[in-house]
């Protein structure tokens, strides 16, 4: 049985302490700039905040992983180098990277710190993963959310590194690291600016019948009827008209969250080394509830018990949950 570390999100220092106190084995976080894929207003860590947070986490035996998981645009690579150097000085335990340049810089300059390959690298084949291991000494790969458990088991048998899978949160299935939908709609890049659906470009319009329209830039991407559960304002969760269907249709994915609570034993059995909870943009209340629920579940499974799993549906997008491709490729 693998250790199955619990990797938990932290968007602010208070969230980080909440995650640590709730039983995270490791927390992941980022600086207040484009070097990470949750570059949202009011979120993330100043250098001083990260220094204090690393101290707090280490005192409790929790690791801190620094997300540097965006792609430096031409001429701006220094920002990623400085973030990597700063992270090393502050004592972080691992980097989460996607770009080969960032990976190479860290391999050369901070070889004593673990490298994890971000889901943003979209490495889903043994060949791709072995390349990153061979060239950059990557110790762990975060797999895209498009693989079934048998496929994960097969990949595990063919790679010389650890596997981390998402178990809860956003069910974003665009080819991560290569999605340009936000860029098309707003001019800002998810992958280079670190922001999917920038809040400054999001507008909610409610009419007098309480229908809620979500606009991103100049595009209306969804319209929720009165009382209908809502989702994030992302294009991949938008509803569109198509020639093949009547009415609005979730052409890419529905507003829905991943929840693999019931698949944890199968994932451990397949050789997954770490479970990732998505949600650096979420609140302390989310972090406390989700982390403590999965801490309990993982501990019970490791003790040979069947956990009584908490109901987390109230925290899910659209208040719906799925096991997605982990259960079957035909989840929709």
């Amino acid at each position: 049985m693998t250790v199955a570390e619990l990797i938990c999100p932290a968007g602010t220092p208070a969230s980080l302490r909440t995650a640590v106190d709730a039983g995270a084995d490791a927390v992941y976080c980022g600086f207040q700039n484009a070097t990470n894929a949750r570059n949202f207003p009011g979120l993330n860590f100043s250098p001083d905040e990260l220094a204090a947070s690393v101290r707090y986490a280490h005192e409790q035996g929790t690791k801190v992983l620094l997300a540097l998981n965006t792609y430096p645009p031409d001429g701006k690579f220094d920002l990623w180098k400085e973030a990597a150097d700063l992270g090393a000085r502050l004592g972080i335990d691992a980097y989460i990277v996607a770009d080969v340049g960032v990976a190479e810089y860290i391999r050369q300059n901070h070889p004593g710190i673990r490298l994890h390959l971000s889901v943003q690298a979209a490495a889903s084949s043994p060949e791709a993963i072995r390349y990153y291991v061979r060239e950059f000494a990557v110790k762990r790969v975060v797999l895209p959310r498009i693989l079934t458990i048998p496929e994960i088991r097969e990949i595990k048998s063919e790679i010389p590194c650890e596997i981390e899978t998402f178990i809860f949160g956003n069910h974003g299935l665009m080819v991560e690291g290569r999605c340009s939908l936000t860029n098309y709609a707003t001019g800002l890049s998810t992958n280079m600016d670190g922001v999917c659906s920038p809040a400054a470009e999001v507008h909610y319009v409610r009419d007098d019948q309480e229908n809620l329209s979500t606009r991103l830039g100049e595009f209306t991407i969804d319209r929720f009827g009165a009382g209908e559960k809502a989702g994030y304002p992302t294009i991949c969760k938008g509803r569109y008209t198509t020639a093949q269907r009547q009415g609005g249709y979730y052409a890419f994915e529905e507003p829905i969250s991943l929840n693999l609570a019931r698949l944890l034993p199968d994932l451990i059995d397949a050789g997954v080394n770490a479970f990732k909870i998505e949600g650096r943009q979420r609140s302390r209340a989310y972090v406390r509830e989700v982390v403590s629920s999965f801490r309990y579940a993982v501990d019970q499974i490791r003790a040979g018990n069947k956990p009584d799993l908490a109901d987390l549906v109230a925290l899910t997008e659209g208040q719906k949950e799925t096991q997605g491709a982990f259960r079957t490729k035909k989840w929709r």
């Binding site: 602010t12 400054a200 609140s283 208040q319």
Partner: peptide
């Protein structure tokens, strides 16, 4: 309680400058 969850359930309604609301939410949550 989580602000995003309240938004999903439609118990919380926001309008106007979304970036300002997100900033305030994150600031207060810290």
């Amino acid at each position: 309680v989580d602000g995003d969850a309240l938004f999903f359930s439609r118990d919380l309604v926001i309008s106007g400058n979304t970036e300002a609301v997100v900033s305030l939410r994150n600031a207060l949550d810290d």
